[in-house]
Write a protein that binds this DNA or RNA. Structure first.
Lengths: 340, 340
DNA sequence: TTGAAAGCGCTACCAG
DNA sequence: CTGGTAGCGCTTTCAA
């Protein structure tokens, strides 16, 4: 049988409230040394473990946080998740990871169901088809931190990366290799990150006087298939690009597939730079020049920020933290030869 | 404010128990159509959501299951996790994912903490330094399913793959390419999967009369560094192997690194076959010949099995399910040229 | 320093 | 068909 406070109380000949005081009470609580010792020894003997569910119910604090991400099997989010999990473990929190599949309905449902389970706080990479859920969170005063994505017009906690700069730099980098026609393959256009990357790209196009044909910007999704089709579209242009920027992990696979199917070679025939965080990218064929995120740091900052809010007595002002991305030169970029 | 049954009861002028019956009671419960309708409409109006925590506490059923794996950022486990999460979502369960880092202490701590949170059931890829925790689970009659790994001498639910056969086949495959000296790089030797793969390898070595020098078997860990050092050891042998079998995802990166640092090329100088499930393997340089697991299916079967146990009235007999692995020929195997 | 009582929100049982 | 009551295990307030 499971041991409860009552069992200990009976054995010790004291009241449950006394047992509770000894086992959970603050240090300041006055309990006589004898009874304290007695209770402690009985608890030990019966190997008492508190019923955390009962406690959570009573206290309305579950010591559980939830992480909402599009897909845990995506290396990007897997590593963010891992970093958060390590810290929540150390801080004594349980972490629930939920996959939204970029579907607003799933995000909503998870959020609702988790709220009724009294989750203490959330870390969310929001789907961004709607911001209503996030507004509700604010209104309900539930602590949360957005990660990777935020809403420009919403003042919330957020840990994001410098997408615009990174994208600008990648474009500049390609232009230094004499590329004039650079294709930009978006992921989901509605996302904060993609919007910012697009802005960075467009600014660079303007500044370095690259081909600003709007057809150079294609794609609206993150799957292999999305990348494949977007690339086909680019290749079918009268003046196809000599270089491509990919804004997604898995997306890039589809892009490479499309390039290979045309019997083109990277970087000889076409250059490729990707926003990619898979640890095996250096072993790809060819090794890809990438922009990567310090995912561990992002997770770390997000959790720390959330923890501050969880522990604060009063409501804290929201904070935005921007993390610098890294640029890795490998072997997927060269000067344009054909098409030029 | 949060709406409770009591609020609805007061508004409807009925007792909470009646409200509970309408909102949660079985179909068979008798409630007059009028009151039912009234209660339903008030619940709707106040947008009542049940306090799942209170219910879980009362029912001692949290509708939560936990998945214990070594590392969610490992593609192998990430995809198992994903598959389980999809199903648990559909079945109305919340999933808690915990990373044990192959540390028995972490596994123990998670198990204990989760037990006191009244988790309904577990899916576990056990660390296997000890089996005491698993035995405790059996004794406490807590439903669980082992995944990927099991204990030969413990009758439990388990979903595993045919490691021995796969390893035998990989060895046979290399021997058909005329390899006589094949190195086998283990992951953690204590693990069920590794033990089985080793057995399959050794059986093939015997059957196809390959070099049975025990120094051909090296390694005891899953990190890049482990793979790197193990490979160095193999290469330092008087008669180094002409082919290597890797038993791990990340491990393989270290192996390739060591091979490249020796200025050897795959498969020209040395052949390589790996147990690997990363989706980007076909894009590696060179594309790796691999044994892969139907991870989705493994997760699927594991959850289904657990669900059966969760829903069963009495205790069910444990079941073992074995999933077939797949062999993918790519371009990392050739006939031995040097060393022979 | 300790005991007694109340109650978190819900469900289940018994009685009418 | 409905109301009342009890209680899950814990914490907290008030009183003694």
């Amino acid at each position: 049988m499971v041991v409860t406070l009552k069992d200990i109380a009976i054995r010790a000949g004291v009241h449950v409230s006394t047992v509770s005081r000894v086992l959970r009470g603050k240090e300041t609580q006055q309990v006589s040394p004898q009874t304290r010792k007695l209770i402690l020894s009985i608890a030990e003997e019966l190997s008492y473990t508190p019923n955390l569910l009962a406690r959570a119910f009573r206290l309305k604090k579950t010591h559980t946080i939830a992480l909402l991400i599009p897909d845990i099997s995506n290396a990007f989010f897997a590593r963010i998740a891992r970093s958060i999990e390590i810290q929540s473990y150390n801080a004594g929190y349980t972490l629930v990871v939920c996959n939204t599949d970029e579907e607003q309905a799933k995000e909503n449902q998870y959020l609702n169901s988790l709220k009724s389970r009294s989750i203490d706080g959330f870390i969310i990479a929001p789907v961004q088809d709607s911001k209503q859920q996030i507004i509700d969170l604010i209104n309900n005063k539930i602590p949360f931190v957005l990660i990777d994505r935020r809403f420009d017009d919403l003042e919330t906690n957020a840990v994001i990366s410098d997408n615009e700069k990174a994208s600008f730099y990648a474009t500049e980098y390609l232009s230094r290799y004499q590329h004039k026609r650079i294709g930009f393959i978006c992921g989901r256009k509605r996302l904060y990150t993609i919007k910012k990357r697009l802005v960075g790209f467009q600014k660079a196009v303007k500044q370095f006087q690259l081909d600003d044909n709007p057809e150079m910007i294609v794609g609206d999704g993150f799957t292999i298939e999305d990348g494949f089709r977007a690339t086909q579209k680019l290749m079918a242009l009268e003046h196809p690009p000599t270089a491509i920027i990919s804004s997604g992990n898995v997306l890039t696979i589809g892009i490479m597939k499309a390039i290979h199917e045309r019997d083109l070679s990277i970087p000889r025939d076409i250059s490729l730079v990707g926003f990619t965080d898979s640890f095996c990218v250096p072993y790809w064929n060819p090794p890809l020049t990438t922009i990567s995120h310090p995912l561990h740091q992002m997770g770390h900052e997000a959790f720390e920020l959330l923890l501050k809010h969880l522990q604060a007595k009063e409501t804290l002002a929201p904070r935005q933290i921007t993390i610098k991305t890294k640029f890795h030169e490998r072997h997927s970029v060269d000067q344009p030869k054909i098409y030029n």
